[in-house]
Each structure stands twice: as C-alpha cells, then as structure tokens.
Computed example of a mutant assay.
Amino acid sequence: MSMIATSASIHPMAVVEDGAVIGENVKIGPFCHVGPHVVLGDNVELLAHAVVTGRTTIGKGTRIFPMAVIGGDPQSVHHGGEETTLSVGDNCTIREGVTMNTGTADFGGKTIVGNNNLFLANSHVAHDCRVGNHVIMSNNVMLAGHVVIEDRVILGGGSAVHQFTRVGRQAFVGGLSAVSYDVIPYGMLNGNPGLLGGLNVVGMTRAGVDRATIHVVRRAYKAIFEGGGSARDNAAAIREEYADCEQVMHILDFIAAESDRALSSPTRGAKG
C-alpha cells in the first residue's frame, strides 16, 4: 500500500504505483511515473514527464524536470536484476533529460548522490557512483560507473569521466574534457586527453580561501608535480612540512589513498 501525505499534490494524469512513499507537500505533475519502491521526501517536485523508478529515495526539496529518468537499472552487462538502490540527497536540481542509475550488486549495490547539487540537462550518473555535495554537472556531462566526485566539484559541459576515476573536492574540469585519471582536490583539468593545468584559484577564492593560503597550496603543487621524484613520492616527502595547511593535506591524503586509476598531472597523456 502506498503512503501518500495528505498535503501532496498529484496530477490526475500522473501514475504513482502502489507501494510508493510520498512526503508532505510533494508536487507530482502530469504524465509523471513514480515506481512502487520509490520514496519522495517532503517538498519534492516532479515536473511533467519525470520518471522516478527502481529502489530510489529522493531527499527533501529536490526538483526533477521533464524527461529525467531517475533510478533506472544500471547500464552494465553484469547486472542481473538485483534489488540495488539509488539515493539522492536534499535540495538537488535535476534538469531535463538527466539519467541516474542504481548500483550493481558486485560493488555494494548503491549509487549515492549528496545534497545541494545541480545536474544540468542530459547529464548522466552511472551505477555505483558517489557524488558529494554542492556539485555542478553541466549539460551532457557523463560519469561512468564507480566514479567518485567530491564536494564542490564543477564539471564543464560535455566532459566525460572514466570509470573508477576520482575527482577531488573543489576541482574544476573544463568543457569537453576527457577525465581518464584521478584529479587532485583544487585541481584544474582541461583537454582531451585531460591535463592538469594548475589550481582552481577562482573556486578557492569564492570558497573563502585567503590569498596567503592559496600561495601555500601553489608551492605544494609545484613541489608535487615539479619535484625530482614521482608525484606520489614527492607528496609523501612534503607531508610534514605542510601539516598545518588543511587544503594541502586534502591533496596529500587524496594522492596517498588507494585508487584504481593513476593520477592526472601536467604531462600524463600529453600528445607529442
């Protein structure tokens, strides 16, 4: 049996299947389809023709625009119909044609999207992804399976992120870029193949990082990518020196963490 709050507004031409849970003040427009295992939090709004299916939970205040399909099966040959899930956080904006898939059983079965994110038209979040908070995915951005996007990342239009790749907090990825390797926190990556081109100073400034700290992070960046050893060895070597800088420690911890992908750099993948 469905649990539908009395304050919810459901257009008579929408389909809400038996078993769905609909919170307070939810608005469901015409020709929407809500599946039987869906939970819509308070103040969620589905505009006309939006589809929410699968074992999907949508957080309070999220808006889903026409032709979005949220909670579809993973696009993976390994998916055998298992009951995997998608969780979308609070106050997200999911624009026209966006697709988000549930997870796959072999990798925990969960796709997780955080709060206050903006997904522009036709962007895609694949199975088993982890998307943080305050993320912006521009039009036609594609995340392959198992991608990790940390907080406050901005992905430019048409960019594509390879499976199992990580993009660190507050990084910026330029439009049409191919992200084949991990991108450090606060990094700026552009091109195909994507090359690390320095730090996202504009983003850091907007986030309230002071100029003196930005200079410290710049020095650490040069030590990591212009030092005599590998980037990972250089990062390990400067850890003690920069222990009192939170932003540098974010970068060093990111580099030290285990990953299935190599690290983006100013030269890795460069042509010529």
Rank of each mutant, 00 (worst) to 15 (best):
Q247E: 11
Y186W: 11
K222F: 09
S138N: 13
G80W: 07
H134F: 14
L195P: 09
A223S: 14
V179S: 11
L143R: 08
L40H: 07
V148C: 13
L252C: 02
A237C: 03
R166I: 02
S259P: 00
N139K: 01
A68D: 11
A68V: 12
H134Q: 09
H162K: 09
N101W: 08
G59R: 10
G272L: 04
S259T: 10
P185I: 03
G23W: 06
R95C: 00
Y181R: 05
A207H: 07
I136G: 13
M3A: 15
D253C: 01
E83I: 08
V161G: 11
I214M: 11
K27W: 09
G132A: 04
I154Q: 12
I70G: 05
I214W: 12
F31P: 07
G227M: 01
A105N: 09
G80P: 00
H37N: 10
C245E: 04
C245I: 09
M100I: 09
A160R: 15
R55L: 08
H79D: 15
F107V: 14
V26L: 02
G208V: 02
R95T: 04
G197P: 07
N101V: 04
L47T: 14
D244Q: 13
I10P: 06
H11I: 07
L40A: 09
N25W: 05
L86D: 00
V21G: 04
G229Q: 15
K271P: 03
V39S: 13
N234W: 05
A256E: 07
Q163H: 13
G269A: 06
D210M: 02
H37V: 08
I136M: 14
K60V: 12
I184H: 00
D128S: 03
V209Q: 13
G108E: 09
E226L: 04
S76V: 14
V217H: 03
T85I: 14
F164K: 06
T57Y: 07
V113A: 03
A270S: 14
